[in-house]
Write a protein that binds this DNA or RNA. Structure first.
Lengths: 221, 221
DNA sequence: TAAATTATTTTGACTAATCAAAATAGCGTG
DNA sequence: CACGCTATTTTGATTAGTCAAAATAATTTA
């Protein structure tokens, strides 16, 4: 049984390799896990010995299929727990991440399956993040973001890719939740600003960086 | 924040000092925690330094009020989680103990309060064990057991004081659940046997030791 | 291409929790 | 009151995970 430390390393490698095309560097891994780089190196060498990762010294690290299995299972637990906390216990959207961070290592597959059924087998968590299936299939869909989509087009928010409480509170307060509809009225790249209009005809500005964390799909029908 | 190891030590001291009148010996503590006695001694000395327990060398250990607070909080988590697993997720009565053993260290007070509300503020868990209140009050009531109660008197089971899967399965299969009614028809102390009659007029024998783990109250009305 | 900057790895040390086995203290019994 | 049994405590080692700081490699800059 991998320890919860090991589970965390593997989960973060999975998460980081979604954005990073290929190998995850020690630097980004270490900072995602809030440890010093030397610690990450040491740990990764141990994980490589145990067959969870492949380590290209001085290049980076990637998951083996064994490591990927563990990582997906942890991610599934995390996202189903978040969904439970929000949908059943009515907890605050912005604060459930930290809770799930602890529970994901303590919950058994048996409990998880029943939770899944109780929730009606959801495909995504409350932030729009896809929930891996029991078999370990992750529905990885590529969406545009508010930073990259076409201007003036009607859009629906599908996902918020950032789990910090502050960002989620910002999104919540500005009605930028999965399901909300809006459009991007303009962008000013040099200034790093995007202007959006929500359905309530409210217009507001946000940074391009923030806009890039809000994924959308074109609204049709 | 106490580690989950520390939480476990404190919880078990609380549990053992219910039966043991006063001080808990290193021997019983060590075997409850499945560690060697030397480990328990070392750990208890550390806990004493941190103010969680009072250690009488070579006599035993007892909780300080700080230690008792932690222990009661863990016990509350354990028993509410068990109740949730059985009442909401419909898990098997006999197997939830092990699950709760892990979750009790991962769940926050915030989540726990909501779980408590969802369950309707239960006073006991599915085994009849009293759930400490949020304020740390433990409704410690003294009950007779099938080993000590009067013969031929109509009784209602209120609690099963033994958490092993095997014992709980035995109780389940013989309809010995909290709420069931029955009476003790006879006891044979030298043989170590008790004979009981459940309402379905079924008569069966069990050891006095097992009978002592089933707590009852006289059925009146 | 040599020097400088940056990222990674190594080394040595530390903490929490554990065990095996030896040392010690308290018994009770003869 | 000494002897022996049992429980407890000590001692020395081990494992997982971590950090600080030195050493090394790679890449960028001049």
């Amino acid at each position: 049984m991998p320890s919860s430390t090991v589970e965390n390393y593997l989960k973060h490698i999975l998460l980081l390799s979604e954005s990073a095309q290929d190998l995850v560097s020690m630097g980004e891994l270490a900072s995602a896990l809030a440890v010093v780089p030397g610690t990450a190196t040491t740990m990764i060498k141990a994980l490589a010995r145990e067959g969870y990762v492949a380590h290209q010294p001085r290049q980076g690290v990637s998951l083996t299929s064994a490591g990927r299995t563990v990582a997906l299972s942890v991610l599934r637990k995390h996202r189903l727990v978040e969904t439970f906390l929000v949908n059943v216990l009515k907890m605050d959207w912005a604060s459930v991440h930290a809770e799930a961070e602890k529970l994901e290592h303590a919950i058994s597959d048996e409990v998880l399956d029943r939770l899944d059924a109780l929730l009606g087998y959801p495909a995504t968590d409350p932030h729009g993040d896809p929930i891996p299936s029991r078999k370990g299939k992750l529905n990885f869909q590529v969406y545009a973001s508010l930073a990259t989509c076409a201007l003036k087009q009607p859009l629906r928010i599908v996902r918020i890719t950032e789990q910090t409480t502050e960002f989620l509170q910002f999104a919540d307060q500005n009605h930028l939740l999965p399901g909300s509809t809006l459009s991007v009225t303009s962008r000013n790249l040099p200034a790093g600003l995007a202007t959006i209009k929500t359905t309530g005809t409210r217009t507001q500005a946000m940074s391009i960086t923030a806009a890039g964390k809000i994924l959308v799909e074109p609204l049709r029908r």
